[in-house]
């Protein structure tokens, strides 16, 4: 496989799922909040847990976003370090 294709598939695999993961986090948070409001507290606390859940979901989304970026960065740093060692050695 050519380098360009390799790089493209690498990018797609590493970054292609960022959007989906972000949205999934928000919806899980929102869904959890709505569940707490409507099922556990029978709507007495609506809309508060919904908003709190939404806020936590958004924060969780950003956390996973940063995690993905840091993971790829760590991996690249490690590779670069190894390459540098090989050159000197």
């Amino acid at each position: 496989m050519s380098d360009l294709k390799n790089e493209m598939i690498d990018l797609l695999a590493n970054y292609g799922h960022i959007g989906f993961t972000f949205v999934a986090c928000i919806f899980v948070g929102l869904g959890g909040g709505i569940l707490l409001d409507q099922k556990v507290f029978n709507g007495r606390t609506a809309p508060w847990f919904t908003f709190i859940g939404l806020a936590f979901g958004i924060v969780a989304g950003f956390k996973t976003l940063l995690q993905i970026l840091w993971r790829v960065k760590d991996k690249n740093d490690k590779n670069n370090k190894n390459d540098g060692k090989d050159d000197r050695g």
């Binding site: 949205v23 999934a24 986090c25 919806f27 899980v28 936590f56 969780a60 989304g61 956390k63 996973t64």
Partner: peptide, 9 residues
């Protein structure tokens, strides 16, 4: 939330 979101995403 971010762990359960793995299941969904």
């Amino acid at each position: 939330i971010s762990n359960i979101a793995r299941l969904v995403s």
